[in-house]
Design a binder for these strands. Structure first.
Lengths: 337, 337
DNA sequence: CTGTTAGCGCATTCAC
DNA sequence: GTGAATGCGCTAACAG
C-alpha cells in the first residue's frame, strides 16, 4: 500500500489533523519545527494524497471530461491537444471520450463522467444530434449539476455556453478574397446543409457577393459532405458551369477538387482558383499549397477550458455563445495577385 | 446533491446494507419483493453510485491513463481512438496525457495518475527518453504498484510489457517489394538513427538486400528526422547518386520526396519508385497514391489495453514484448508490375 | 497550538 | 433476511 496520512501521523507522533493542516498549508498556527518535521517525513515517505478521498470531501476532482466524435479527425486532435495543454496549466486532468458520432454514446459518457464526479464537461456534440437529442444531453448534465461548454457545434441559445468559430465571417473572408482576386463566378461545395456551420459559411459567402454587388446563383452551389469524394463528385457537376473559382467548405473537400482537376488536366490556380476551410496540416505541403480559412482551434480550446473552470467554481458569465474569428491563410491555390 | 444510497434507504425504509446488496446483485438471500422495490425506487430516484466512494473501497477506479507525446500526430490519435474504443468495451475510462515529448512531464503525469488511483497506464514514452530516463519512469510506476504497458517505443527487456510494430519486418517488406519490382539501387531516408524503430527498419532493409544478394551501400543511406523537410533535403543529396527507388522511413518523409521530385520534374514512379512507412490517411489520396507499410495501430491499441487489464487484475503474462506484424499496402508510387 | 469528532458515499463483515 | 458497525483516506468544524 501507499503511505497515507495516518502512516505519517504514526511516524511523527502528531495527529492526523495536524498532518493534514500542515500539508495543506493551513498550519499557520503550527510551530515551524513541527511543520518542518511533518513536511520532511512526508517527503521521505513519498506521501501523496489519495485524490479519491480528497474528491469525496471537496466535491471537486480536478478532472474534466472531453466528449468528441472522433479524435482521429485533425480538427479534434488539435483541439484536444490545446485543451489538454490548458488543463495541464491548471493542474486538471482530462478524460477523453470518443462518441463515434453516436448520440447514445454521448449520453453514456455523460452518465459515467457524472459518476466519476468530474468538475465539468467540454462537449463536442455528436453530429447526428438534432435539437431534441442535444436537449436530452443538456438536461442530463443539468440534472447532474455538471457545468459544460459546447465546442465547435452548437445551437444559438442562452441555456448554455459555447465556444466556436465564426463561420459566417469565415465564409465571408474566403469569398471576399476570391472576389478581390478578380473571380466573379465562384462555385461552392458545401457540407451537409442541415449543419449550422455549413449554413453559416454559405451565409458569409452570400454577404461577400452582395457587398460586391454580384448575383447569387443557386446553380453553382453543390452540397457535399466534407469528404474528399464529395469534392470530386461536386466538380463533376460544376465543370461545365463556367466557374472560375471554387470555395470548398473544408480542406478535405478541396483535396477532392484538386484530385478531379488533376485528372481533368485543369490547372490550379491558372484555370481554377481554389479556397478551402480549416487549414489542416496537409494543406500547406501540397504541390499547390491551399489558400484556406484558418480556424483558431487553439484559442477555442483554451477559452472553453477557461470558461468551464469559471463555471465549475460557480461563476456565471454574461455572454453565452463565444464566436472566435477565423483568419485567411493565403497560399498559391487562389492565384497570384 | 445527487441521490445517494442513504436517500433510497430512507425512501424505502430498508437499511443501507440491503440497498447495497441488492444494487450489487448480491442479494440472493433477499426476497424478490424487497429487491424489486429497491431497484424500482433506485431507478426512479436516478441513483448512480459515486465512483469516488466505490474506488476508495474497491481500490479500482475503472480508469486508466494514456501518456503520449502528441495527440495531433496521426499515429497517436489513431492509437488513442483504438485504445479508447477498447476501453469503452470494458467500461473503462481513459485519462489523456500529452507529454509534448518532455520526460519531466511524463513523470508529472505518472504521479498525478497514481494520485487519481488509475488502474494502470499505457505509456508512450517521450522521445527524449534515454534508458536512464525510461528507468526513472519505470521505477516510479513500480513504486506506485501501477501496472503499465509501453506502446510504440520501447526497450527490449523483461522488466515490463510492451506492444509495438515489428519494424525490422516492415523494413524488410518495403525493400523486398521494391526489389521484386526490379529496383536494385534503393536509397533510404531514415529517421533519427539513435531511435530503435529507425535502426530496426534499416536492419530489415539490409536483410532484404542480403536475401537478394545485393550489396549494401552506405552512401545512399541518409539520416532524416521524420519530417517533410528532411525528405526534401535528403533528395537533394540523393539526386545524383544514381538510385532508382527510395524507401522513406515514414510517410511524411515520403511527402518530402514527392515535393522535391515535383520541383525537379522527376516523375514518380516512372523515374523514381517510392515506398513510405506508416500508411497515414493522406497517403491514399495523393495524386500518386503512396505504396507504404501499414502499421497495425488498431491492433496495437487493442492488445495494449487487453494486456493492461490482465495486469491490473493481477495476472502475470509469460511474454513481455509483443511485436505485431505490419503489412505492405501497394499503391502507385512503387511502379506497375 | 493541537487533537477529537464527524462525516464524504459506499461495501462488507458479522451479528441478530 | 436484514441491519449495525467498521473502515477506505481524507478534510474541517469545534474544542480545549
Amino acid at each position: 500500500m501507499r503511505t497515507t496520512i495516518k502512516d505519517i501521523a504514526e511516524e511523527t507522533g502528531f495527529s492526523i489533523t495536524t498532518i493534514s493542516l500542515v500539508l495543506n498549508n493551513k498550519g499557520d498556527s503550527i510551530p515551524k519545527v513541527t511543520r518542518d518535521i511533518i513536511k520532511k517525513t512526508a517527503k521521505e515517505m513519498g506521501y501523496r494524497p489519495n485524490q479519491l478521498a480528497v474528491g469525496l470531501i471537496k466535491k471537486r476532482t480536478k478532472t474534466i471530461g472531453l466528449i468528441i466524435s472522433d479524435i482521429r479527425n485533425v480538427f479534434f486532435s488539435t483541439l484536444a491537444k490545446a485543451i489538454e495543454d490548458e488543463c495541464h496549466k491548471h493542474d486538471i486532468n482530462l478524460i477523453l471520450c470518443n462518441s463515434n458520432d453516436e448520440h447514445k454514446r454521448d449520453i453514456d459518457y455523460i452518465n459515467v463522467l457524472a459518476d466519476k464526479r468530474v468538475d465539468g464537461i467540454i462537449y463536442g456534440m455528436s453530429s447526428d444530434s438534432d435539437f431534441d437529442k442535444a436537449t436530452e444531453s443538456f438536461e442530463l448534465m443539468n440534472d447532474y449539476f455538471l457545468p459544460f461548454v459546447m465546442v465547435d457545434r452548437y445551437f444559438d441559445s442562452n441555456m448554455y455556453y459555447s465556444v466556436s468559430t465564426d463561420h459566417k465571417y469565415g465564409g465571408y473572408l474566403a469569398t471576399k478574397h476570391l472576389i478581390e482576386r478578380g473571380y466573379e463566378r465562384i462555385g461552392c461545395v458545401t457540407g451537409p446543409i442541415y449543419l449550422k456551420d455549413s449554413i453559416d459559411r454559405l451565409e458569409g459567402y452570400k454577404c461577400a457577393l452582395e457587398e460586391a454587388k454580384l448575383m447569387y446563383d443557386d446553380s453553382i452551389i453543390v452540397e457535399g459532405n466534407y469528404t474528399v469524394e464529395s469534392g470530386m463528385k461536386a466538380m463533376e457537376y460544376l465543370k461545365d458551369k463556367d466557374i472560375s473559382a471554387v470555395f470548398a467548405f473544408n480542406d478535405m473537400t478541396a483535396f477532392g477538387v484538386y484530385n478531379y482537376a488533376k485528372k481533368m488536366n485543369i490547372s490550379i490556380p491558372k484555370d481554377l482558383a481554389l479556397v478551402g476551410y480549416d487549414d489542416i496540416f496537409f494543406s500547406e505541403i501540397l504541390e499547390t499549397p491551399l489558400t484556406t480559412i484558418h480556424q483558431p482551434i487553439d484559442e477555442i480550446g483554451i477559452l472553453s477550458v477557461k470558461i468551464l473552470l469559471l463555471l465549475a467554481q460557480g461563476s456565471k458569465l454574461k455572454k453565452n455563445n463565444y464566436l472566435l474569428k477565423p483568419s485567411l491563410t493565403i497560399r498559391k491555390s487562389s492565384g497570384i495577385r
